[in-house]
Amino acid sequence: MKTPDLPAKTVATTSAPRKRPPRGDKIAPYLFVAPFLILFLVFGAYPLIKSVILAFYITSGPRDQVFVGLENFRFLLSDPDFWKAVRNTAVYTFWSLALQVPLGLGLAILLNSRWVKGREFFRLAFFSPNLVGQVFVGVLFSVLFVPQYGLVNRFLHATVGTPLDTRWLAEPSLVMPALVMTSLWMYVGMHMVYFLAGLQAVERELYEAATIDGANSWGQFWHVTLPGIRHVLIFVVLVSTIGSFQLFELPWVMLGRSPGPDGAGLTIVMYLYINGYVAGDLGYASAVGWTLALGLLIVSLLQLRLSGGWKG
């Protein structure tokens, strides 16, 4: 259908010079963005810029500062404790992803199927650990893991015969498994909720078409479900990675406000906290913070590239 041309008069009317808006209208947009801008400048931009500057100083509190150039970064890269923190954080991140993501997805598929009774209850039950903070969970699990009398040891002793006095939080090799188990309990429900939302957005017709084409359950999962929730999967992996790299409260509480035996629970953020707020060297802590930010950026970009997340 052809669109009729507008009469010349109408065109002339619409292109007539506009009236100058009142003065208040000019200011209004700035007023609207001002709250965000002020807050961002005061609590976002200023600390960021300040921390960049601080990273080049050795400090004792905010007043005593000595410029040292790149010394903080040089020291950081040669500090065995920093590398221990990096290693611990990487191990925690790996195991968290390796266990939480498949388990969260499995639970979501299970609770998305119609034949499971009481799905709403189970969804709430699995998600509920997320309603309490890491501090609460840390206190709870530090009691569950105690030797001799703790429920974990009692259960394992009764079922697989492990010693009752297994010191989960005092034995360097057991600290990380304890942390991973605790975070599994805490976060698997949250991943499940993300995946559930993704699963519910996958069109039913695709499954029906796959069934007609002769796809079995595995084929449906591989060719329909996974591509359908790809974006959720990328999001969950990315968020989990960033969250794992920021791990602090859980080990800090579970290990009695310390990095644990042999620093087995030392994470990068804990290392930052100890240097900044216990030792008082805000400059060094800033250098750690920026190194962490850079590391996270690289890991996130790598993940996005490997998963094809760029393509949208």
Partner: peptide, 13 residues
């Protein structure tokens, strides 16, 4: 020697 921990655990021990 051994150590089980503080608080209630110490009490029980």
């Amino acid at each position: 020697g051994n150590d089980l921990g503080g608080g209630q655990i110490f009490t029980r021990a």
